[in-house]
Design a protein around this nucleic acid. Structure first.
Lengths: 199, 199, 199, 199
DNA sequence: AATGAATGAGATTTCATTCAT
DNA sequence: AATGAATGAAATCTCATTCAT
């Protein structure tokens, strides 16, 4: 008897998930060019060919992972509208989490690494298309959060979009340097980063 | 008639220079993997094989370019001991220059691009070796400059090495984001960056 | 409740038929190499694996389709022994039908296309084996029809087998050229083809 | 000392020639899909990679060979304007040569095989583009030759272009059948083929 | 020193075939 | 019988490196 539709879907999804996990991990650590499809398959514990049942090219796999990454990050910075937590606190928590992640090379830092490492290997323009599809949501969400903080008098005045970009520039830079220097890197404190936002 | 030793040396040096120029330009714009040895030869206006008379592998060529780049940057941040210019002014000038370069994608920004783009593609550990050879001079010079500023009461107190790393992290991040976003990027002002340092 | 033997057989036969239909259509239009087993399954509306319940390899499927095709064509040229229609008329009708089919890319022309396109992609020798199994019936039937025509004084004298081959060569060539040139092809008339047979 | 430009050109040309020779032979005998680039390289006695110094893809190699083939055939059918040989004689010679070639699987027949076998494996439309580039010269040259014959009263009246296509259809068909049947094939005589043209 | 043709190892990709369900 | 996820061998293509001249 054939497997049911449901069973197949579950298998397929599980495999796709394994591939994306392996891809994220390898792309973010080794970059696009130095990560081979074979690598990814081995890490995911499947055959090379199977990857091509789920993604038509290596590029497409990368693209999809990047898209997911941006969405994931976007979620992480989302400001809880009805919450009692102030923008400054949201930022501080997010930043502290990130710094911890960067220090221990986990979760969130993978996302930044992916963007840092891999985007730079590829046509920035092509990737901006991906970004546009995600509507630059991340930067805009963050800008909106900054505006809230400015209204509440927590943050300095200024162009909120520019400040949002500055914030992510700093994070990018820290992620880069950590990757680059490894254990030699002495990470800044949350407060160091908040300096340019807080009054 | 055979060329004299001297003539040969001069030619050889000129060729090597051409290769390094071409390499810096291509590696910083396209990254290590996407730059082929043939590309470099064509840009330098020489034959592919000739590169291997001067460098034994593509890796070595990259390494040498990186080393040169770090030394060059190190020079640019060197604090003029006997000058009348204060550390804060030195930093402000350097930062302003850099931001201008980044905006117009020139000179100094090439160096940062090279580090950002290419280091990340390679084994961070391997490259740290290169760095060690260059003695992490850049970061230490900068740390010393920060110390001077602290003595003069211009800069915040704190671990100067950590602050030095923070400074370069910010610069790295800005270079990345500019490359990534192109014209969409709204660069910060010098003063935004100096916030991290100034009292 | 288990299906009866009979029901199973009927289903099995229906499936096999669907596969052969899909195979004929795709092999004749796209050729052996460019037709994938998955293509055939999709066109037949079944799963890939099911094809292997009915045919052990892609080669075997092709072989079987070819065999059927040759038999089918053989039937089409069969001379109705007891009929009032003369050999010349039989030929003329067959040829006219064929030319019409070729012009509109239908039925009979599929058979010729299959032979033209696909046989050529494969080991001619291997396929001759298939042909032998079909006893070269087609060519011989046709030769016999030519002999009848010769007896009746309708056709030129000559080696009837050779003339039969010549006839099919001409048809093959026309099918090829039509496929190759598409709308640019100006097909010959029935009479043009009959020239070499008729007195 | 480096090789001179001339030496390099000679080497390069010799290699390209070897590749084209090997390609023509293999493509015409085995078809496009079943001929691997490795095959061609081995037949040409060179490394696989070297083929890609001369042709950017397998498709391009095939295309170039096809173009050459069409030109070559076009030359073979060219009517010598000022000659004493009549169109009928030109045709008869060409046809006789071709039949001989087909029988012994040589030279000219390779060209027809290439067209027959390989064109059919590929997008007819794509290849028509190639043909258009060659201006369908072959068919038109032949049509012109037929017109001469008609003026001289040697050939039947009728649309010369259509007759030209018919002629090549017959040749194609014969080449196909010969390939298909091998030694079992009994080829027609020159006169059988001329029937279509002669009064 | 200089050339660029040539090599060959390794990457991506395709697809006939198998297999667990 | 039926499914389609999974495999793995083989194909195309790239490119750092070598080598004859």
């Amino acid at each position: 008897m054939a497997r049911t539709q449901e069973q197949n879907d579950k298998m397929s999804l599980a495999t796709k998930h394994k591939i994306i996990e392996a891809g994220l991990s390898l792309f973010s650590r080794k970059g696009f060019s130095k990560t081979s499809v074979k690598d990814i398959a081995q890490t995911a514990g499947i055959s090379t060919g199977l990857i091509y049942c789920h993604f038509s090219t290596k590029e497409e796999l990368f693209s999809e992972i990047l898209k997911k990454t941006i969405i994931e990050m976007s979620k992480a910075v989302r400001f809880p509208e009805d919450s009692n937590i102030s923008p400054a606190q949201t930022f501080a928590r997010f930043t502290a989490n990130l710094l911890k992640d960067i220090q221990s090379s986990e979760d969130l830092s993978d996302y930044f690494l992916l963007i840092t490492r891999c985007i730079l290997e590829k046509d920035a323009l092509n990737l901006m298309e991906e970004f546009k599809k995600s509507d630059l949501l991340l930067f805009e969400n963050t800008a909106r959060l900054i505006e809230k903080g400015q209204e509440l008098g927590e943050f300095k005045q200024g162009n909120s979009y520019k400040m949002s970009l500055m914030f992510f520039s700093v994070i990018q830079g820290i992620t880069d340097m950590k990757l680059f220097m490894g254990d030699k890197y002495v990470a800044p404190e949350t407060s160091d980063i908040m300096t340019f936002l807080l009054k």
